[in-house]
Computed example of a mutant assay.
Amino acid sequence: MAVIDNIHERILATGIAEAGALLDRLGAPGDPLWPSPTWIPMRFDRPLAVGADGGHGPVRYHVTAYEPGRRVEFTFHPRIGLTGTHTAEILPHGPGSCVLRHRLVATSTGKMRLLWPALVRVCHDTVVEHLLDNAEHAVTGTVARPVRYPWRARLAVATESVRLRAVPVPENARLLKAALPHPDLADAYAVRVPPGTSLDPQTWADAIFRNPPPAVTALLRLRNALVAPFGIDRGDASAFDTVARTDRELLLGTDAGHLDFRASILVEPDDDGTTITLSTHATARNRSGRGYLAVVGLFHPPIVRAMARRAARAAVAPRPQASRKVSATR
């Protein structure tokens, strides 16, 4: 059975003590190394110490060795299909510098025999290089050669870090419920994103409604062309103006001749991430409005889902640091 021996390292222009202080914060709140929110954060059931159990997303492991400021070893849970360890350590390199090294030594079992070469290896390499970029940026303020995300890593980020689902309109969407308490159309979609994304509902509203997918923009233009003969108002950007807000909820919408429309953006953070819920209420004013909702109700769910998913993926997309370019695995 082939042994995976995967090594990444970076020379850091700082002393061992400063680099070791970064290493000691792995998995802690405000972890400066782990590339979140692009990837699901590393989390443990206790502060970093031998016996601490956790991982990142579906990749589970526990701490089996720890030398504060110098070295931490994680042993994989066998159920993930890897038997072995991955280790991060600080090594001396000379005056005013040191090396941050990450090494994974393991054998693959079950499905992981196929998943490692097909997908997991490229994601692992990308995560670790991004982590090394963060270490370099923490000690120098720049990154000389940043990691570039291959398409398989971008696909994994979009799949694992952004989870969208249909939900009931939240009880905490109080602005929405007060504005249109008896809607003819009501739905809500929640997307879960890792910690580190914006907690400002206005930022999310702008991302969702001011930058929709091109297909949605085309559908809205088609809608405006089709509704005019039926006496229905043509929509414009003012339909998504903010009308009220609290610290965690933002309400936007408009009143038109055929219906009243409101949308709520509710931001609910916790220790493991943030839930962004986009809820819609619409109330018909007349027969045209009722007919319009009957048709729009068929297209509304996929359109809203596409808009929310696009905004969430943009929020977790890897952002280059200043002066970054690709760093090779050594």
Score class of each variant (00 low, 15 high):
I80C: 02
G141N: 01
W151H: 13
G96A: 13
V127L: 09
L91Y: 01
S97E: 02
A65N: 08
R71F: 14
A118Y: 09
T159Y: 10
A156V: 07
E171N: 08
V72G: 00
P95I: 13
V59C: 10
M112D: 02
T142F: 07
R145A: 15
R145W: 09
A135E: 03
K111D: 01
H77A: 13
V105Y: 09
L164W: 07
A156T: 03
G110I: 04
R71E: 15
A144F: 10
N172W: 14
V167N: 04
L131E: 00
R101H: 05
V59T: 02
L155N: 04
V105T: 14
H77I: 12
V143G: 04
G55M: 13
A144V: 08
I80R: 05
T109W: 07
A158M: 05
P58R: 11
I90K: 12
T159A: 08
P146Y: 12
A88E: 04
T142L: 14
E67S: 05
R174M: 04
R71P: 13
V99H: 10
V127I: 14
D125V: 03
P150L: 08
V139M: 07
T85I: 12
G96T: 09
P117S: 05
A156Q: 11
A106G: 09
L100W: 06
A65Y: 10
H102T: 03
M112V: 06
P68F: 14
A166K: 11
G69F: 03
R152A: 12
R152I: 12
V157L: 00
R103Q: 11
L132P: 04
T64N: 07
T64K: 07
S108A: 15
P92M: 01
A173Q: 12
A138L: 11
A65S: 09
H56G: 00
V167E: 06
H137Y: 13
H124I: 05
H102Y: 15
I90Y: 09
G55Q: 02
A106P: 09
V122H: 02
I80L: 11
P170L: 02
R101N: 05
A153G: 01
Y61W: 13
M112E: 07
F76P: 10
E129G: 02
Y61A: 09
R60E: 05
